[in-house]
Nucleic acid binder design. Structure first.
Lengths: 239, 239
DNA sequence: CGCGAGCTTGAACATTATCAAGGCAAGTGG
DNA sequence: CCACTTGCCTTGATAATGTTCAAGCTCGCG
């Protein structure tokens, strides 16, 4: 399992280089750390861990995507995050011996790298630079969640949906001549569960947006964003 | 300004000891760090910084409380956090040279301690233990925000209001013979802005809860929680 | 005592959820 | 290759819920 050279083709190296938190390390440090990484693959629908588990490892996504969700008392899924290539999560699993606050499920065939809790503590003590990178990244995540919380305060549902589409456009969009083609990581139901609304409402609202000429629903997995400017205005992001 | 001994009466020391992130330090380390802390006091309604500013310092609350909010495109205030004694915030100001994502306003006469960005980087490199504590604390905050996001997915408003009251009970409650007396840090309007709903709706819902015998609204600043168990059930926290 | 901020209450209105039925598309098996 | 099945999405009608606007109230304070 241990790679005895620094081959750039090692899948360990792939993980390391995709994640900014390791960018401050020297090549020797990287190769030491990559020797303690574990790998695993998941199929679509498979659970990485469940709410309440104590998996005690930090997970970095190498390929694919993962949704993190809680189940509400009424039995609905509330999606909290959608992680994809290069994202890491599970830091709550490492520290404070807390239980995982959410369930993590693969949205597509997904490959991950993970560190055990003990190893990670060692690394942090030896390389304060990594800790700072992690703090920065967590700070960014908090800022993004604060954005989400604000958008929830926006009563206008249209704004929230536009905001979600814009987020997806940044993360999963490809620029094409007609606009931005968004490859949706989740179904309509997933979007509804992300926004905390009913499936049917998403359908209706997307229908409206299409009627207004802002988007074109290519199929259930792809949406073409035709007018980003108008979308920004709707989302209230240009004030 | 610099305290040349380790007097426990120094207000620097007060800050240090109220915040768990410094708990791993030796007395000498503490006194060094406390020598670079700055202090400031704010009156109710005063702004610590505004959304978009780059204050570049980490703030620890010594006394009082602070609300962090964004203004929605419609002009409503969306409260993101309510910080009180012992909490720290502004980590986004330190790292990544980002702009502050929210405005911070004192809810009461408030005293703070702060670190400048440069000093804090030094401290982190010299004391990895602090970095780990900060990562833990940020992880907890993320977990709390995830709870909040879930509760937003709960369509039942009663649940969300009950959840808020329970949170307040933990943080601002005093046990009295009749139950738990909550000293509200914010007005009804503040609660509404926290939950992203209308003032009037909070009034009506609190009225219902009072009619049901779960709470007693002593006055606008205090609420008596008479039946915590029933409240937990309503909030859906006992599943 | 009178004023004002913040809270409560009422009624009409707007929006979204829910329930129900139908459609579309991909995959399966004969 | 076609009919069938299954999963997901759309659309319609109705009910529930919260918002908004307007008016009146209450408590603390000068």
């Amino acid at each position: 399992m241990n790679c005895n050279c620094c081959s750039v083709h090692s899948s360990d190296q792939i993980c390391m280089h995709k994640v900014p938190i390791f960018s401050s390390l020297s090549p020797e440090e990287m190769s030491h750390i990559s020797s303690i990484i574990k790998h695993k693959n998941y199929q679509k629908g498979e659970l990485l861990f469940s709410e309440g588990d104590s998996p005690r490892s930090l997970i970095i996504i190498n390929e694919g995507s993962v949704k993190a969700f809680k189940v509400t008392p009424e039995g609905r899924e509330q999606i909290l995050h959608i992680f994809s290539e290069g994202d890491f999560f599970g830091e709550q699993n490492l520290f404070g011996s807390q239980k995982s606050p959410y369930t993590a499920e693969a949205l597509a065939p997904t490959g991950i790298c993970s560190f055990a809790k003990e190893d990670f503590y060692q690394i942090l003590h030896a390389h304060p630079g990594i800790a700072i990178k992690i703090i920065e990244t967590l700070g960014e995540r908090i800022a993004r969640m604060e954005d989400t919380m604000q958008s929830i305060g926006v009563r206008n549902l249209d704004s929230r949906i536009s905001g979600l589409l814009l987020d997806f456009a940044d993360k999963y969009g490809k620029v094409v001549p007609e606009g931005i083609l968004i490859q949706l990581p989740v179904s309509r139901e997933g979007m509804a569960n992300y926004l905390g609304i009913a499936r049917e409402t998403i359908s209706r609202k997307l229908g409206q947006l299409e009627a207004e000429g802002l988007i074109h629903s290519v199929n259930n997995k792809n949406i073409l964003l035709k007018n980003r400017e108008a979308m920004n205005t709707l989302a209230g992001k240009d004030c």
